[in-house]
Amino acid sequence: MNCKKVRRLLPLMAGSEIPKSKILALKTHLEECPKCRQEYDSYNLSLEKTKEWLAKDRKDWEDNEWKQALRRAIKDKKPEVSPPVSWPFKKVWAYSFIGMLVVALTLLFIIRPSITQKNMGLGSEKFTQEQAQLFRRSPEESEQEVVSMTLVSKETGLKIVWFLNKNFELEVKE
């Protein structure tokens, strides 16, 4: 163990918070290095003096003050009846969930155009079959005598089909 590492651990060693595995190496170094030993003694002295003073100079309430403080704490208040339900998950889980949700939505947004094209796009298989069925309902009519116009909304998928005869007059179809 070098001096730099030892000096980093000295504040904790002064308070006996060093793992047992490191103590032996530290003690060996302190026996060999007078500068580190001096620093360690200095930590011990300052800590000892401070602890001593903190123990000696403790503040206390006057009895009537203490009782008054307790009365104030109790006065006009009752302990909460129902504790609020604490969040059962860790924050990390919440953030991971939000992250996954964002990724899923992004993927959906990227994939979506192909889905919509499949369901509503002009020239799609579904649309052609429906259109053919409409023509099949009136076999007596000649295909050349009827023209159809179809409008499809890309946003809503709403379809409007107009049938026009050879004179371009609108025909009503069931």
Binding site: A69, R72, A73, K77, P79, E80, V81, P83
Partner: peptide, 11 residues
């Protein structure tokens, strides 16, 4: 702190 201790003691 005493007020909070009393108030939230159920927690």
């Amino acid at each position: 702190a005493l007020i909070k201790v009393y108030r939230y003691l159920r927690r």
